[in-house]
């Protein structure tokens, strides 16, 4: 390198740099292999469930999706009831969790005194740390009886409204789609609210200050400045919650009631894709087992798409910030 050093590079240094290069190459290969395992896990989950469910998926095709006749004894597998159950409970969960999460995020970013923010947001996030089986037990032993006690009132009031009344009529069992939806709402609350809280904090202070300077109220700043600025990420957070709700198993299995009858009422027992799998898989053989794995494939594809949308929407805001 420098002109003054006339001596040649010693042999062992050259040797060492060559082994170093070889080690580096191996190390890089090892790391890349491990990273590829993440891809393999996702791809493998899709392909293996497709393979496991092939008998039913390819034999019955669309009838599998649109028939509500689920009869393992006669090898009839129509997945409409679990599909509808999954969608309805997740929808209820979103309808309840989105406004509440928004409220929590608003409270934690704009209203609460500074000393309160840390502990309260930590507490809300603890909801996400509680294992789902605990939600299930609490749901079955505590929340179901509670729902059973208020359902007569629901039927008497909401049940009389012309169009949506049919949703709230039925025997006060406590178990059912509505109860499952509410339990799911509590479960996904921390996910949606923590995304909202985080993105609300990224709104530049000068945008908000400008709005306050023009005389806006706190609510107007949030609704007209903060929310439009973070819209894509907020939608992303909602889809993230939806992805969680669709795939959740343990919390809903106990409280759904495991019934394949499709009814208009939300107070009636139902089933969902994940709870059908959890309830029946270990007793199922042959076609029945294949049908359950096919359900798993369906669930995976749907949640994959929902989560894909969620991540894309979340990235939009990061782009905007130049991250």
């Amino acid at each position: 390198m420098s002109a003054t050093s006339a001596e040649p590079i010693p042999r062992d240094t050259e040797h060492r740099s060559r082994t170093d290069a070889r080690h580096d190459l191996f190390f890089r290969f090892l790391l890349r292999f491990c990273a590829m395992l993440v891809l393999a896990a996702l791809l493998g989950a899709a392909l293996s469930t497709l393979w496991g469910g092939r008998e039913v998926l390819f034999k019955d095709g669309f009838r599998f999706l649109f028939s509500s006749d689920w009869n393992p004894v006669e090898n009839q597998f129509g997945a409409l009831a679990p599909i509808v159950g999954t969608l309805v409970t997740s929808l209820i969960a979103l309808l309840l969790a989105v406004p509440v999460s928004f409220g929590i995020a608003l409270f934690l970013t704009e209203i609460a005194p500074r000393w309160m923010r840390g502990p309260v947001s930590a507490a809300i996030e603890l909801l996400a740390a509680i294992p789902s089986i605990i939600y299930g037990m609490w749901g079955l032993f505590v929340f179901v009886p509670f729902m059973a006690s208020i359902e007569p009132t629901l039927s008497d009031t909401l049940g009389n409204i012309p169009v949506i009344g049919a949703l709230f009529q039925g025997p006060p069992l406590g178990l059912g789609l509505l109860t499952a939806g509410i339990v799911l709402a509590v479960m996904i609350l921390p996910f949606i609210s923590s995304v909202m809280r985080e993105v609300f904090q990224t709104v530049p202070a000068r945008l908000k200050e400008s709005s306050y300077a023009l005389g806006s109220t706190t609510w107007e700043v949030v609704w007209d400045i903060v929310l439009p600025y973070t819209r894509s990420a907020v939608i992303g957070g909602i889809f993230l919650g939806l992805g969680r709700a669709l795939g959740e198993t343990m919390a809903v299995t106990f409280v759904l009631g495991n019934s394949y009858n499709l009814t208009a009422s939300l107070l009636m027992p139902g089933t969902s894709i994940s709870s059908s799998i959890a309830n029946e898989f270990n007793e199922a053989v042959g076609m029945h087992r294949s049908a359950l794995i096919a359900l798993g494939f369906l669930l995976f594809v749907v949640t994959f798409i929902v989560l894909l949308i969620a991540r894309f929407m979340l990235r939009q805001l990061q782009r905007k910030e130049g991250r």
């Binding site: 993440v38 896990a41 989950a45 496991g52 795939g247 994940s274 794995i293 798993g296 995976f300 994959f304």
Partner: peptide, 17 residues
Amino acid sequence: DILLSAPSIVLGLFVYV
């Protein structure tokens, strides 16, 4: 990030297969 919130029951089915 998607694997992070993938339904755990499907991962169970995957390992079963």
